[in-house]
Design a protein around this nucleic acid. Structure first.
Lengths: 136, 136
DNA sequence: GATTATCCTATTAAGTCTATAGGGTAATAG
DNA sequence: CTATTACCCTATAGACTTAATAGGATAATC
């Protein structure tokens, strides 16, 4: 299940991409347009700023804006920041690898190979889509 | 994230597939071999029996056994029973469709199309893998 | 009829997710 | 310089889900 945080984050990013070139957009405007709790959205945008996707400007006329061109922003990078690992088990995660605590051996795990295939198929989608693809 | 229920269920099914032809296998034996809490596994096996994947025999010499040939059991069917929807949002789910409560319109949702692609890619993997593929 | 092993319900402990509260800080306009 | 605007940051609470446990009921076998 996709978390609300990720879903709202994606919607906000897509909205900002569609407003590209019009200067900073206020949280309140994004929240209203996408029907998202403003306070919750605030924390999501903050994390997107800290991870380098968004810039912000304070005070009157301030708001959030995209730093890169939508076409340059891969879905893999967005998803990892918002949702975390793309893999469904830590033992097949590229960026968040961990040994599964309930598995004595990865080679003997009947689930390992299947989840590897699922991860690869998801990765292919995310690698072939950018923020620009969310807008059109 | 894959739930423990699903992971344990898959491991149990794979073990039963590897023991195919040796008669019923006791819960205790499966739990020990896969290092799973026996009581928790009990409830998982029960749900797999109620959904037609496993048969069971009570009393001495009893246990669980596969009903179909491992090659005949598609991963799509197993995953839907154990994990639930394959889609990451209800609005792109084939078997568990629901309108997203936070979306006024699916056509205007920037996330919808992407999640459709992710679902399709996962489906392709699950449709091309059977229980037999977990064993080898 | 004693033993074995599945069947079934209820409950709890832990963790995560979503959202809210309440104020602090910086920039801008006049 | 001061009032206003809008982002910044931490803490916390409520709801929900998951993982696991407890305790016994039921059915089959020897």
């Amino acid at each position: 299940m996709l978390s609300k945080k990720t879903k709202y984050g994606l919607k906000a990013l897509a909205f900002l991409a569609s407003q590209k070139g019009k200067g900073p957009v206020q949280i309140a405007e994004i929240a209203k347009h996408e029907t998202i709790s403003q306070k919750f959205l605030e924390s999501i945008l903050l994390s997107l700023r800290k991870t380098g996707f968004l810039g912000s400007k304070k005070g009157k006329g301030g708001g959030y804006y995209l730093i890169k061109e939508p076409k340059e922003v891969l879905m893999t990078d967005i998803m990892r920041v918002l949702e975390g690992p793309i893999a469904m088990v830590p033992c097949v995660s590229l960026n968040f690898y961990e040994k599964c605590d309930d598995c004595p051996s990865e080679d003997d795990c009947s689930v390992h190979m299947l989840m590897l295939k699922v991860r690869d198929s998801a990765l292919e989608v995310y690698r072939n889509n950018t923020l620009a693809d969310l807008v059109t």
